[in-house]
Amino acid sequence: MGDMRERDNYGDISRDEEGTPGTSRENRNRRVNRIAFVLLVLILWELVPRLSGISPLLFPPLSRVLETMAEDFLAGTLSERIGFSLLIIFEGVFLALVLALLLSLGSLVGRGMAVWVDTLVVLMHPLPGIALLPILILWAGTGRTAVLWIIVHSVLWPLSTSIVAGIRTIPQHLYDVSRNFNLRLHQRLLHLIIPGALPHLLSGLRIGWARAWRALIAAEMVFGAAGGSGGLGWYIFQKRVFMDSQGLFAGILLIMGIGILFEELFFEALEKISVKKWGGAS
């Protein structure tokens, strides 16, 4: 919203004004509407199981789910699970980011390299990480390492595609300008390539984040975790073993909640201080 007001101040000189009057009100209406919908679903979740007489084992009311969630938080197991999940995802995404940057910079070296990188990405991209699991277990054992590499795999390829696409969208004139002022390699990266590819990199990270999340939960559900520690997927897996359906729903709610939290807060904020400030539309 603050962004909108700022733009309006420049209205007299701004050429292409995207914001039309009423847009911010429309946004607010959308947000209110969205929250209303979520509240409605939550209320129905509470009421339907209670009034319909469905067995709470199949569909427990919301309050019971929240109760279990609170208990597990207090016992410390849930925060441990969440911490485990987030840590391994951060590690995986970071590793994938480094590798993706290396790959896309490699594709800048020459036309031959670009074809190689492109081919590699095209081959690997459609392969679901979970399909690699048996092989990774053979190579790395049923531990954290195997899960980590599945996350890296599921983030690396879409992220590389995004970064390469981002580099391609940098206007030719900016390359000309950087040639004109004799930019050295590190200056070219710092002033041109990295900021130029950033909008695409960020949207690639968004996709990567969602994929990492899915890959992690899937991997943990399939073979659990090693050494008695695991993340949210492992939490759900355990709850299934004990037929604790309240715990199952608690796990699902948390996975959704954390996903939204990152999507709305982390990535939004990241874009607000960079891409959106530069006038990008993403």
Partner: peptide
């Protein structure tokens, strides 16, 4: 043998400034 900072180009298009 190549562009040099002593001879600078100015283009018609508006995208010659770094947007960031």
């Amino acid at each position: 043998n190549g562009p040099c900072p002593e001879a600078v180009m100015v283009f018609q298009e508006f995208d010659q400034l770094f947007p960031w």
